[in-house]
């Protein structure tokens, strides 16, 4: 009996161990080793911290690094602001069928690939696109307007891609809030704002934090949206990693960049948890 349970346990654990080991741990160890060496000549490498030194002294790299962090935090904040009312409406105000339909509507964009969705935005926003033509037709503009390849377009794309991952945890936590608790908030003299601040938001906090963590990670690691909507000047850190690995074949620097990104995302998630006074365990459990 005990032997059987042990075999069952091992069998259940195997896929997870394989997945973590083969796809996460081993590549990261290899990446760490690559990032900690320097190419002396063809096929000759020497252990050194030169890659990190280069990454931290070159202003372009540093600026891109900082900019990616700030923009990702901003995208997370905007996503939260947009998603909260949507989630509140779905969880608390919509009833029965409408609730399901609205939830499905949030999901529908994910039926098409991210590439196609991003092309959709390009069709709308480009110089010869729908919005530009419409503005000329109405008379708001007298020449084609280019709305692509700037930070705003990139932000729109990032928020759009992340919406679902914020709405789902928010809806789940808001649904678990008893309506009578909200009513009690009003009954005891609260107005809409104070009920939101003292009752609804504190209750939704686990959803807010887990949604923010997921959206932040997705934005930080997003490659497609910044490249396509932000254009050449988007200066996204993942593009830099891509360039080092693929364009320059400089795996050493690319690996160092990758580690910097890992440290950055860990630090910001940790900071977010500290700021809201939660532990990772509470948020995920």
């Amino acid at each position: 009996m005990r032997a059987e349970t042990r075999i069952g346990f091992i069998l259940l654990l195997t896929p997870l161990v394989l997945w973590l080991g083969l796809l996460i741990v081993i590549p990261h160890i290899d990446m760490a080793l690559i990032s900690l060496r320097e190419r002396i000549s063809f096929g000759v490498y020497e252990p050194s911290l030169a890659q990190y030194e280069k990454a931290l002294t070159e202003p372009l790299y540093l600026r891109t690094f900082g900019r990616t962090a700030v923009m990702s935090v901003l995208a997370t904040a905007i996503t939260l602001l947009v998603a909260f009312p949507v989630a509140y409406y779905i969880a608390k105000m919509a009833k029965g069928r409408l609730q399901q339909v609205l939830f499905l509507l949030c999901l529908i964009p994910f039926y098409v690939s991210e590439l196609v969705r991003t092309f959709g935005w390009m069709i709308l926003l480009r110089e010869t696109g729908l919005i530009s033509s419409l503005m000329q037709w109405v008379g708001l503009a007298d020449q084609p307007v280019e709305m692509l390849y700037n930070d705003a377009a990139m932000m729109v794309g990032l928020v759009y891609t992340s919406m679902l991952f914020m709405v789902v945890p928010l809806v789940t936590t808001l649904e678990s809030l008893d309506d009578s608790v909200i009513e009690a908030g009003y009954d005891l003299g609260g107005n809409g704002w104070s009920v939101l601040r003292e009752i609804i938001i504190p209750h939704a906090m686990p959803g807010v934090v887990s949604g923010c963590i997921v959206v932040f990670m997705l934005s930080l690691g997003n490659y497609l949206t910044p490249t396509m909507l932000g254009g050449k000047d988007s200066l996204w850190f993942t593009e830099m990693i891509y360039n080092q690995f693929i364009v320059r074949s400089n795996w050493e620097l690319g690996a160092a960049f990758g580690f910097m990104l890992l440290v950055l995302s860990s630090a910001i998630v940790w900071g977010m948890l500290r700021l809201t006074g939660r532990t990772l365990q509470e948020t995920m459990g």
């Binding site: 008893d178 009578s180 608790v181 009513e183 009690a184 908030g185 009003y186 009954d187 005891l188 003299g189 609260g190 107005n191 003292e198 009752i199 504190p202 209750h203 906090m205």
Partner: peptide
């Protein structure tokens, strides 16, 4: 008079104490 301004208070069926406080 809105509910939050009425001189009436209510003890709810499941009490509705604020669990976050």
């Amino acid at each position: 008079v809105a509910p939050n301004k009425r001189p009436v208070n209510m003890v709810f069926q499941h009490l509705a104490l604020f669990p976050m406080m």
